[in-house]
Design a protein around this nucleic acid. Sequence first.
DNA 1: CCAATAGTGTCTGTGAGACAGTATAAG
DNA 2: CTTATACTGTCTCACAGACACTATTGG
Lengths: 276, 276
Amino acid sequence: MKEYKSEEEFLKDYDSSIYEKLSMTADILVLSVSSKDTENYRKNEDKRMSILLVKREEYPYKGKWCLPGGFLDPKKETLEECARRVLKKETNLSDLYLEQLYTFDRLNRDPRLRVISTSFVALVDKNKLKEKVKNASWFDIIKMEEKNNIVSFVLENGEEKIEFKVRKTLRERTSDRYQFTTEENTSLAFDHDIVILAGIERIRNKLSYTDIVFHMLPEYFTLGELQRVYEVLLNKKLLDPAFRRMIADKVIKTERMKTGEGHRPSYLYKYKYEKS
Amino acid sequence: MKEYKSEEEFLKDYDSSIYEKLSMTADILVLSVSSKDTENYRKNEDKRMSILLVKREEYPYKGKWCLPGGFLDPKKETLEECARRVLKKETNLSDLYLEQLYTFDRLNRDPRLRVISTSFVALVDKNKLKEKVKNASWFDIIKMEEKNNIVSFVLENGEEKIEFKVRKTLRERTSDRYQFTTEENTSLAFDHDIVILAGIERIRNKLSYTDIVFHMLPEYFTLGELQRVYEVLLNKKLLDPAFRRMIADKVIKTERMKTGEGHRPSYLYKYKYEKS
DNA sequence: CCAATAGTGTCTGTGAGACAGTATAAG
DNA sequence: CTTATACTGTCTCACAGACACTATTGG
């Protein structure tokens, strides 16, 4: 091998084609909590997790649903920048909370060629989105249930219903890492069933020690609404006094009230800090 | 665009060169806890975190230290397989606990060409390594201290001393994500200063809710040794009774004792379960 | 005996879980 | 008055933090 005297000299001469290359994509799980009015005017609205899916227009997986995502331009952008660009283009969403989730790299995740995908989770306040989301559709998670290491999902967007199951097994006794494998999936492209599960679990875990919930809420909210968001995400009922103690130091009470609900009005609260 | 009738037909015709490609590497932070005998025969040995570094033989960063790592072969392997292959080759280590940490993708992290690196953290019981590690050197972390958002490191391998500082700032009020940036670094290649900090913080956080410590311990250990490993990793003293309550349901007491220490002998314990 | 660690008993305060009670709107 | 939620008071039990005490070795 030729000897170089300096880094500059070496770089000038460097042949960047000696290593095999590959393509990367950024895929984004956009997660939100939606409200659905109920029959009984008195009752509070139902809340559901909802995620954003895009219908594939081309092969592979033509006609199937997938997470918004796209190929990285290696010359110009980071993966996070790629994720934001793709979200803007495919779904017209911008300025949302975005965090890197995991890099998925199974050898045949894409039948065309070797593609490694770094996935992200984004959180949005769905109520803010007046305009219908371009090219994409919000699916409510109407069921997500774990039984015997299998997590069963049922999603719905008003017209279509999607079902899939993911097997979830502990990788080792000593840690909290799970091996996710597709158990049943005829509607989602690539390994996006697994990204969805991994992303939801990440957010669930972070709920208890961060303030990320507030990204899924409007500026003003009642403590009941806030509590129901927690309950939907964690999939369990919480006790009122304990919940209020828990969030007491994260919110500020305002003078404004939410009325006209058929029962005692509630105060509107704000997140105590700036979100970013 | 040509219309295809089936996925098979599409794939046959697919030109995989239309997307720009790039190279990926896997870099591994190998973390362990080492024991150092002290002057006073009665006192327990000092424990320190230690990490494995490799000296770069070629440009770029020739002569600097870096984490073991290497280029992914996109045709054949996953990133984790790549990490294990590289570890075996560069350091002769195998069968260790390995977990994906983060994908680092700054545009100029490698001056040669665009390289995205997925980093891993590995945990090993350093005492088990009889043979001197091939091509690599264990550095003890003799200082790691946070002050005014700057984390200062001092590492030492017996001959050489490495110092660097990383700036650590919260990315947003709502989450627990930090933005790490190099504040001072003349000894480590690439962005490996940041990988080291991110990896240590990951392991620290996981200590409280997993059993990963046991990957850094031999089969038999005293509770004192176990406690000192926790203390080194968390960088704080723990109270004996509280510590013993905390780990009581994770270990099994054996009949064997550790004697000859100049003070009351202690029972040897084992991890209660199989590690994997 | 001394130095040093091993290992345990127990008190105390905090805080989560739980239940029950009061308050207040719309119809 | 009923229904449904908003919001609060308080009891209890578990458990982490803290301190103090006993046990046991090598020299």
